[in-house]
Structures are given as structure tokens and as C-alpha cells.
Design a protein around this nucleic acid. Structure first.
Length: 724
DNA sequence: GCGATCAGGT
DNA sequence: CACACCTGATCGC
């Protein structure tokens, strides 16, 4: 694993790294191999469970039980073989060539037969086409395709979540209460005329007419949903714009017209405006200091003004507005349920839950305060939400039962002096600067080195945690494990005195080995990396994707004037390009800064030999991921190398590749002229299936998602999906 | 001038 | 979608 380094103070090499990736020989399970799990796959649809991903060929079995050490991706016994074109089995050759060819199922690449020939040419080291990996890939592709069929079911699960049911319920107009069947009569929400006989378009015309003529009476609308909708869509309902316009005018008068939207979205009326604090402004999205101060100052001036004369002309002119607002809010209360609006706290869907403590259901984990949390994260505090308290630390940055914080440097407070950092990615260490003086930072050795080197945190502030070793910090037993995310990434188990253990996954990619390590006290709360917590994200094992990339490179390499580009983050994806180097037996170019960084990651000397900072020594270059994002940038690179290279083949490894389109394919190939870009689903987060497996195994009482998205992917919805 | 922070982009 | 990061603008010391 990445962090095996941490096991040994003096030597932070990544063992067992001596092995060479040999994709060309049949593989054997390694010593550490565990038999594939026999337990039934979790499936939202039991009837379809007979479509497992071919157990005998899962990467877990072919490779060494899902291990993570670079070297152990494949058995160490097989140094790169000098085999053996003569042993090639033609039928399977078709298989593996078609891997590359099929990538191009969008079209362009590689017709079958010719390309096969090219494959052989490119196959400098030769290899047994009948390899397990080739079978693994074709197999997994089949199973993936089959799994696509399950997808609908998964989506159904999602849409059937508690949240969704509520949303559906809420979005039904009152008029359509009784079933809303299509035979029911449809009334205009304004004049209540039966408009069933009209076409949909005609109905729109009708209601729009009513709107135009009846606008002043909108307060009498029956459906509060409609009112809310109007606010959401002021363009369609101009009368409401004028409702809010004093606020908007005021904002405009400050020269901050760009924030009008914010006030509109938050439905801030004149009264509310005057009670806004600076915190509120921050929370509704006015994050720039300047504008915020400006508004705050203007507000205090406004308040003073209001105090000075309680019946000022300005207030007078606005009274009708505020009255209307009040009226609206009372109407609202009286006619629930109401339609959810974009700016509604998810908490509101779960009355009581937000303020309740941990809600425990027998055997079923729940999303703890998930609702409140999702609101807190994006807009730290919402209007009227926090009684003026400052920055709210999101739930997932806290460790229940302890005063500790995890990846919470954006929320530095003086009441905490134990700060954990799970890994060195910007979104987790953001806020951490070298002037940090809030106590100790606990992290893995690799992360500590990076934090020290890149941010300048002095070593005195850093406390290295070694993998799988329990230590006691402020009375809490703390153990960390390899998170299999990026080098140095850890998951942390906290065992506070109250007996309720907390597992914080940080960002992680599931592996079965984690479960071996996680034995011990049962986990009460699980803070879970839910990046891909949606059934639509199901991607192959990393090993399979590496395999795919290697084969694609081989297939494309018939042209000696080809430049290969592999995308990478500051840290992450190393495994991918290191394996490519090993397999192709070619050095990989990285820039000096990257080399310095890689030197912190504990690679062995042998591994480091695969890297070079001399551009001319390699035609495989590691570049930042975003330079591959657009063909425009790629063309720019191509222009730089017109003399040396006639073809560019780029690999863009990201889990999002397996989004809505091209689901679960091991990669796809895009081409523009002499530039080819492969998008490969190489993910360093757990797939949905893996998340389910993990949650199932850990079986916590409470799940706290570390989510970035809200809406239908709310915490509650996610938890419900995980449990389905 | 520099570091920190934010907005907007890929 | 928004991974994890970049660039450029702005702010404060």
C-alpha cells in the first residue's frame, strides 16, 4: 500500500516494489491472496443478482487480492518476460487488440485485422495474448455491460429515497391532490377555470394571460407552491420582482448589482435585510470581503436611520412590501406541504432531525444530522440559522465524542488543538498555512513531508502517525490505516472513552484488506467519502484500468513519432504511470518539481529509476491532468513538438469518466486529427459498489457523508442508496 | 511586495 | 457531474 512506508520509521520505501508488472504472463494468486468473497453481491434488485462480475477473473483474484503496493499489483515472481510472439494465440490476440480497438467504438480507431498486426509490431516485449488480464478485461467488460441493465433499478432506488418521496409529494400542486391521474380535470391555478380540454401549450397561454390580468391578486392564490415558484422565477412573474425591488434597488445603489441574484434567491425582503449580520451575508454567498463590508456598513447605517425615526418615509414606502411578505409567509405556513425551493435547507424535509442528536435506528445506519450538514457545508450558515455564531464546522470535519478535527483547516478555531490531515490534496488541507498555530497536525509520514515541504509547516507542529499502530492522543485511542487514495492518505479510527468508535475514511478507495485491519471495536460512526455515492458511478478496479492503458499504449505505439501524455495531480495517479513505465520498460518524463515531490512519496530506488527529468529521454510524459482536459491545450502541446512527434496520445485518468455516458466502459477514445485522448476511469475514490460493500462490512450505526453535493444526492438519499 | 483568499475555469 | 487543481484578481499586512 502507499503507506506501508509508515510502518518503518527509517525506511519509507514502498514495499514490495521490486516486482515488475508483467501483464504478459498468466497470473497466479499471490501469497496474500484471499479467496474471492462468496457472499452475495449487494444489489438493489435481488432478482438480478445472478450477474456478478465473473468471480474467477475479478482483479482481486488475478492480481494480488486488491493490494495497493505498486509492486504488488501483479505477482512479483514475473519479471518482465521476454516472451514470445510465437506462443501467441491468435484468437486471443484478437481479444487484446480489440481492447484497444474497441476503445474506439466511437469510431475512429483501428479496424480489426490491420490493427491486430500493428499490435504485434508494437508489442516490443511480446506477450501471451491469453493472459488472465486480457480475459479479465474482456470479461469485466461483459459483466459491466450486463450490469448496465441493473442501472435502471439503481436509479429507481435513488428516486425512491426518502428525500425523493418528499420532493415528489411537495411538488404536487394542491389542485392535483387526489392521485393526479391524467383523467382528472385540470384547473387554471389562477381563475380556476377547467382547462382540461386545452393542449399543454394552450394551458400555458391561458395561465400566463391570467397572470397578466390577475397579478395584483396573487396574494389570494390557493396554492402556496405557486407563490414559491413565482419567487423562483421572477422573470415570469414581474410583480414579484417589484416586490423585492426595494432590496434590489438598494443593493444596486451600493454598486453591487452583481449580488442582486443572491438577494433574490434568498428571498430577502426589506425587513430581513435590516436584520442581516455580516455572517449572514457570508453565508448567503457574499464571500468577497469588500462587498460584504460595504453591505454591512450600509446596513448599520440603515438600521441607525430606522431607529432614529420609526416612521420614516422610506420605510413607509416599503410597508406594503413587507406586509405582502408577511402575508406570504403566513399563507405558506397554512398550506403545507409546500414546494421545495432551491434555497431550502434540506433539514426542512426532516422536521426535528436537524436538531435531534444522533438518531439511531435499529441496525440501520442513518445520516447523522446529514440534513443540517449539507446546508452548513456549502453556505456555512444560513439566514436565521445560527444566531450569529461564526463559521460552522461541517459535521464531517468533526469526530463525535472527541474535540478533534479532521481536514478542517478551513475552519480553524482556538478551541481545538488536535488537527488531523488525511492526505495532501488541496481540498483537504485548504486553509493550512505556515502560520498555523492552532496546535498539532497529525498525519502520515508522507503527508507530513509534503506539508513541511510545500507549505512550510515546521516539524514541531507535525505529529506523524504510523499505519496500524494505536496511539493515545488526549485520552483517545487513534489508529490509522492506508486509505488507498493517494500516497500518504489515511483513514483514521478514533476510540474515545465513551466507547463509541469513529472511523473517518478521509478520501479512500475500498479494498478488502481494509476490512482485515479494521477488526476490533465496532464502529459507531462512519465518516464516509461519498464522492461517487451514486449507482451511476461504477468503474473497474484500478488494475484493470492500468491494464487498459498499457494495452492502449501498445496499440498506438506503432508510430515511433508518438508522444504519450499521462495526466496526474500533484499527488495521485502515480501507480498508473509507474506501471506503464515498468511494463513498457521505458522511462517517464516528469518535471523537476514533480520529481522533488515524488521523492517525498517513499518510492524505492528502483521505482525512482523509471523517472527522468530529461525530456528527450522519454516519449511518455507526465503532465497535469488539466492540460489534457481540452483538445485546444493538447494542440498547443502538439505544436511545441512538431519536429519530434507526429502523433499525441493522451490519457486522462478520472473517475468522472464513468458518468452518465459511456458508463463503466474501461475507457474511451477521442480523436481530433493527430491528437488522441483516452479518458480512462482510473479512480482513487471508491465506486458505488465498493462503498456499499464497505458500509455493509463496517456496519456503523451512523454514517456521516463527506459530500460535496446536495439536492437529490443528499446525505439521507445516499445513505438510503448504500443500504439498498 | 508578499501571502492569503476568492472567483471562475478545466 | 465537479475529481483536484490552476490562473488571475483582490485584499490585508
Amino acid at each position: 500500500m502507499w503507506n506501508t512506508a509508515g510502518d518503518d520509521d527509517d525506511d519509507f520505501q514502498i514495499p514490495p516494489s521490486s516486482s515488475q508488472l508483467s501483464i504478459r504472463k498468466p497470473l497466479h494468486p499471490t501469497i496474500s491472496h484471499r479467496p474471492p468473497r462468496k457472499k452475495p453481491r449487494l444489489s438493489p434488485n435481488p432478482g438480478k443478482e445472478n450477474i456478478p462480475p465473473a468471480p474467477e477473473f475479478t482483479s482481486d483474484t488475478c492480481f494480488s487480492s486488491g493490494s495497493h503496493a505498486l509492486g504488488s499489483i501483479l505477482p512479483s515472481s514475473s519479471s518482465t518476460p521476454d516472451c514470445i510472439p510465437s506462443s501467441v494465440d491468435c484468437s486471443s490476440a484478437g481479444d487484446s487488440c480489440s481492447l484497444a480497438a474497441e476503445v474506439g467504438n466511437d469510431g475512429v480507431l483501428v479496424g480489426g485485422e490491420e490493427k491486430k498486426g500493428e499490435c504485434f509490431k508494437a508489442n516490443r516485449e511480446g506477450y501471451s495474448r491469453n493472459s488472465m488480464e486480457a480475459r479479465l478485461l474482456s470479461k469485466s467488460r461483459v459483466s459491466l455491460r450486463l450490469e448496465d441493465e441493473e442501472e435502471d433499478e439503481c436509479c429507481f432506488v435513488e428516486s425512491d429515497s426518502e428525500l425523493d418521496v418528499l420532493i415528489k409529494l411537495c411538488s404536487e400542486p394542491e389542485g392535483s391532490n387526489s392521485g393526479g391521474g391524467k383523467d382528472d380535470s385540470i384547473q387554471c391555478p389562477l381563475c380556476e377555470t377547467d382547462i382540461s380540454g386545452l393542449s399543454e401549450e394552450e394551458r400555458h397561454v391561458h395561465t400566463n394571460n391570467c397572470l397578466d390580468t390577475q397579478a395584483p391578486e396573487q396574494g389570494s392564490l390557493k396554492s402556496s407552491c405557486f407563490i414559491e415558484e413565482s419567487v423562483d422565477d421572477p422573470v415570469q412573474h414581474p410583480e414579484l420582482v417589484s416586490d423585492l425591488s426595494p432590496v434590489l434597488k438598494w443593493v444596486r445603489s451600493l454598486g453591487l448589482a452583481k449580488y442582486e441574484d443572491v438577494f433574490l434567491r434568498e428571498e430577502i425582503d426589506w425587513d430581513t435585510l435590516q436584520s442581516l449580520t455580516e455572517e449572514d451575508l457570508l453565508s448567503i454567498g457574499i464571500t468577497s470581503l469588500g462587498p460584504r463590508k460595504k453591505i454591512a456598513n450600509a446596513l448599520s447605517a440603515l438600521r441607525e436611520e430606522a431607529c432614529a425615526s420609526s416612521a420614516e418615509p422610506q420605510a413607509q414606502s416599503l410597508s406594503n412590501v413587507t406586509e405582502r411578505q408577511r402575508e406570504r409567509s403566513t399563507t405558506r405556513k397554512a398550506s403545507e406541504p409546500r414546494k421545495p425551493t432551491a434555497n431550502k435547507l434540506i433539514t426542512e424535509f426532516f422536521p426535528g432531525q436537524a436538531t435531534d442528536g444522533i438518531r439511531k435506528l435499529p441496525k440501520e445506519p442513518v445520516a447523522e444530522k446529514s440534513a443540517a450538514d449539507s446546508g452548513c457545508r456549502r453556505a456555512a450558515v444560513r439566514r436565521n440559522g445560527n444566531n450569529g455564531k461564526s463559521k460552522v464546522v461541517p459535521q464531517w470535519n468533526c469526530v463525535p465524542g472527541t474535540p478533534f478535527r479532521v481536514d478542517a483547516f478551513k475552519y480553524l478555531t482556538r478551541d481545538c488543538c488536535h488537527w488531523f490531515l488525511t492526505h495532501f490534496h488541496l481540498d483537504h488541507y485548504q486553509g493550512l498555512t505556515k502560520s498555523f498555530s492552532h496546535g498539532k497536525i497529525y498525519c502520515s509520514l508522507i503527508t507530513a513531508k509534503l506539508v513541511n515541504m510545500k507549505i512550510g509547516i515546521p516539524w514541531e507542529r507535525l505529529q506523524v502517525l504510523h499505519l496500524n499502530q494505536k496511539v493515545n492522543i488526549a485520552g483517545v485511542d487513534v489508529t490509522c490505516f492506508d486509505a488507498n487514495h493517494c500516497p500518504g492518505s489515511i483513514m483514521i479510527r478514533f476510540e474515545p472513552a465513551n466507547g463509541k468508535a469513529v472511523l473517518h475514511t478521509g478520501d479512500f478507495r475500498y479494498s478488502e484488506e481494509m476490512l482485515n485491519l479494521l477488526t476490533g471495536s465496532p464502529i459507531s460512526s462512519l465518516v464516509l467519502d461519498t464522492t461517487y455515492c451514486n449507482p451511476q458511478y461504477d468503474f473497474p478496479k484500478q488494475e484493470a484500468v492500468i491494464q487498459f492503458v498499457v494495452e492502449a499504449i501498445q496499440a498506438e505505439a506503432f508510430n515511433p513519432k508518438t508522444l504519450f501524455l499521462i495526466g496526474s495531480y500533484t499527488i495521485g495517479k502515480e501507480r498508473l504511470f509507474l506501471e506503464v513505465a515498468r511494463v513498457l520498460r521505458e522511462k517517464i518524463y516528469i518535471n523537476p518539481a514533480k520529481l522533488k515531490l515524488l521523492e517525498c512519496l517513499g518510492f524505492s530506488k528502483e521505482d525512482m529509476r523509471w523517472f527522468t527529468v530529461k525530456e528527450e529521454e522519454s516519449h511518455i510524459h507526465v503532465v497535469p491532468l488539466w492540460t489534457l482536459a481540452s483538445f485546444k491545450r493538447l494542440k498547443h502541446i502538439a505544436n511545441r513538438y512538431t519536429n519530434r512527434y507526429s502523433l499525441i496520445v493522451a490519457f486522462s485518468p478520472t473517475g468522472w469518466t464513468s458518468g452518465k455516458s459511456k458508463k463503466k466502459s474501461p475507457g474511451r477514445r477521442l480523436q481530433q486529427g493527430t491528437i488522441i485522448r483516452y479518458e480512462v476511469p482510473y479512480s482513487e475514490h471508491s465506486s458505488f459498489t465498493e462503498l456499499k460493500e464497505f458500509v455493509q462490512q463496517v456496519s456503523p450505526e451512523v454514517i456521516i457523508p463527506s459530500v460535496n453535493n446536495d439536492g437529490p444526492d443528499s446525505a439521507a438519499a445516499m445513505v438510503s442508496m448504500l443500504l439498498t
